[in-house]
C-alpha cells in the first residue's frame, strides 16, 4: 500500500469514525463534539500557517472573528439567509487576511508575531468600540428561526453535528490534499529553509502570502460556522485568548500534521471541561500545558507518534 493510499484511508476512516460517534453519542457529548469539530477547523486553518509554513501568528482570532462577525452581522442586521451569510463571513476573513498578510509579511520572526498580535488587538478593540452593532463584550444572539438551511434546522443537535462535521471534513480534506501537491511541498520548504527554497526558483513571498490567506480564510470559515451553528457572536472570540488557543491546540495535537489539530482540540476541550468543574481558575491548565509542551514535547501528540512509531503519518 502506498503512502498516498494510506493517508486517504486514514482521513476517510477518521470521518467515518466521526459519523458513527455522532450517531451513537448521547446528546451532551454530541454537542461537545460539534463544537470540537468547528474549533478543530479553526485549528486546521492555523496549522496551515504555523505547522506547515512555519509562520507563527499570534493574532488569528481576528480571522476567526472576521468570519464570525461577517456572517453573524449579515444574518442579525441584514437578515441574510444562512448560506449567503456564511459566504459573507468567509469573504470578510479572506479580505482581512490579504491586508494583514501584505503588511505583516514585511517582517519576520518575533516581529511577525508581535505585528499580528497588534493587528488582532486593534480588531478586538474595534469590535468593542462598534458596540452599537456588535453588542461589544456581550455580543448578540442570532435568532433561532433564521438558523436553518433548506428547511433543516441547525438548532437540532443531530443536524448541527453533521453540519459541523461537513465543515470540518472540507477543511481536513482540502489541507490534506494541498500538502500533497507541489504548492504544499513548497510551503514545507519555506518552513524548513526559506532561503534555499527561494534559490530553487520559488517565489517564497507569494507562497507565504497565499498561506496566510488560505489559513485566514479557513479560520474565518470556522468562525462563520460557529456563529451559525451555536447562534452566538461576541467580542471574546476576537480576544487574545482566542489567538492563543489555536497555538495551544496545534502544539498539543502536533504541528504540521493533518489530524493533530482535531486531537489537540478534543484533548484540551475535555481537559478544560473537567478543570472548570473543579475551579474557576481553569485556564491554569492552559498555562501548564503550554509550558510543558514547550519544554518536553514540541512535536505534540501526533508528532511524537509519527516520530516514534508511524513515520508515514501525514
Amino acid at each position: 500500500m502506498t503512502v498516498d493510499t494510506r493517508s486517504v484511508l486514514l482521513h476517510l476512516g477518521l470521518i467515518a469514525l466521526l459519523i458513527v460517534l455522532g450517531l451513537v453519542l448521547p446528546t451532551y457529548h454530541q454537542g461537545n463534539l460539534a463544537r470540537i469539530l468547528v474549533l478543530a477547523t479553526y485549528a486546521i486553518g492555523f496549522n496551515v500557517l504555523f505547522g506547515y509554513t512555519g509562520l507563527l501568528s499570534l493574532g488569528h482570532a481576528m480571522f476567526f472573528a472576521a468570519g464570525m462577525y461577517g456572517c453573524g452581522l449579515a444574518m442579525h442586521l441584514g437578515g441574510w439567509p444562512v448560506l449567503s451569510a456564511l459566504g459573507a463571513g468567509i469573504i470578510a476573513a479572506a479580505v482581512l487576511s490579504l491586508i494583514v498578510a501584505l503588511l505583516a509579511l514585511r517582517t519576520i520572526g518575533v516581529a511577525f508575531m508581535i505585528v499580528t498580535l497588534m493587528f488582532a488587538q486593534a480588531f478586538f478593540l474595534t469590535a468593542l468600540y462598534l458596540g452599537e452593532w456588535t453588542g461589544g463584550d456581550e455580543g448578540f444572539v442570532i435568532a433561532q428561526a433564521s438558523r436553518q438551511i433548506a428547511g433543516f434546522a441547525l438548532t437540532d443537535p443531530l443536524t448541527r453535528f453533521f453540519a459541523a462535521l461537513a465543515v470540518f471534513s472540507v477543511a481536513l480534506l482540502i489541507t490534506a490534499r494541498m500538502m500533497h501537491l507541489p504548492f504544499g511541498r513548497v510551503l514545507i520548504g519555506v518552513r524548513e529553509n526559506e532561503e534555499r527554497t527561494r534559490m530553487l526558483g520559488y517565489d517564497t513571498f507569494r507562497h507565504k502570502l497565499l498561506a496566510v490567506i488560505i489559513s485566514g480564510t479557513i479560520s474565518g470559515g470556522a468562525g462563520a460556522a460557529y456563529a451559525v451553528l451555536f447562534g452566538y457572536v461576541g467580542a471574546t472570540f476576537a480576544s487574545v485568548q482566542y489567538s492563543i488557543f489555536p497555538l495551544l491546540w496545534v502544539l498539543l495535537g502536533g504541528m504540521g500534521t493533518t489530524i493533530g489539530p482535531l486531537i489537540g482540540v478534543a484533548f484540551m476541550f475535555y481537559l478544560i471541561d473537567y478543570a472548570s468543574g473543579l475551579t474557576n481558575a481553569y485556564l491554569l491548565i492552559v498555562g501548564a500545558a503550554l509550558v510543558l509542551l514547550t519544554l518536553f514535547a514540541r512535536a505534540g501528540i501526533v508528532g511524537e507518534i509519527r516520530k516514534r512509531w508511524v513515520p508515514w503519518l501525514p
Partner: peptide, 16 residues
C-alpha cells in the same frame, strides 16, 4: 519563539 510560547504559558499560570 519557544520563549514566547513558554512565557504565554507562564502568563496564564501566574494569572490563574
Amino acid at each position: 519563539e519557544a520563549t514566547i510560547v513558554g512565557t504565554i504559558g507562564v502568563l496564564y499560570i501566574i494569572q490563574q
